[in-house]
């Protein structure tokens, strides 16, 4: 457990953004992904809150990693995460009041966001604070990327605006379903499918430069 081997800070950072994206690759933390992406502003605020909690919790846990005992480690993780989440909740209420109102119960729910507990277990409890910080920022940015993409797609299609500014002509028939809960599933499913298609196309091309027997994607589309 104390062997400091494993991915370097740079690897941790890069992996979090796309190769091991917490949302698109690990499918973790889907509750906020589906719940707060009706508008880009709330998605980005949520991501910022998660990034802050993830960074603080990862560094703290990495600092006390030698004191952790296997049977109480999850409780310790949860305790530290809950502390930082409550702090964020208070700070948002004091300084970003409209946003804290908009996010409502989803802010305290960051406590049960499994991305954070997963990073504490996988990285912070095994590696140095530097690794943990790089990991937290990488995973946090990956989470931001996912929430931002989904929030932008849903807000543009559902309300015709982006960050509250109108981007589509008034004639655009607003797809209200996109900002309602089912819209989150549609948008997330399609984004995930697109990313998976892209990925298998790239893998197929790398494994098999002449795209005749690609495994997961039609050869004609894999080559374009």
């Amino acid at each position: 457990m104390n062997s400091e081997s494993g991915p370097t800070p740079t690897e941790r950072f890069i992996n979090g953004i796309l190769p091991e994206n917490p949302v698109f690759r690990q499918l973790l933390g889907l509750c906020p992904v589906l719940a707060v992406t009706a508008s880009l502003a709330s998605a980005l605020t949520m991501s910022a809150a998660v990034l802050f909690v993830l960074l603080c919790a990862n560094v703290c846990i990495s600092l006390i990693r030698h004191l952790l005992r296997p049977h109480v480690r999850i409780v310790v993780f949860t305790l530290i995460i809950a502390g930082f989440v409550t702090l964020v909740d208070l700070l948002m209420g004091a300084f970003f009041y409209p946003m804290s109102k908009l996010l409502g119960p989803y802010l305290p729910l960051i406590i049960v966001n499994c991305i954070i507990i997963c990073r504490c277990e996988v990285c912070a409890s095994r590696q140095t604070p530097l690794h943990a910080a790089a990991d937290a920022i990488g995973q946090g940015l990956g989470f931001t990327l996912a929430l931002g993409a989904l929030g932008a797609v849903r807000e543009v299609l559902g309300a015709g605006s982006l960050l509250g500014h109108r981007v589509l002509p008034a004639a655009w028939p607003e797809q209200v379903v996109m900002i309602l809960p089912p819209g989150a599933f549609f948008a997330f499913g399609l984004l995930l499918a697109a990313l998976n298609a892209l990925r298998s196309a790239r893998t197929a091309r790398r494994l098999n430069p002449s795209p005749t027997e690609s495994l997961a994607w039609k050869p004609s589309e894999a080559s374009c």
């Binding site: 005992r69 049977h71 109480v72 310790v76 305790l79 530290i80």
Partner: peptide
Amino acid sequence: RSALLLCLS
């Protein structure tokens, strides 16, 4: 065993 937990709390 629970000293860490108590202190942290």
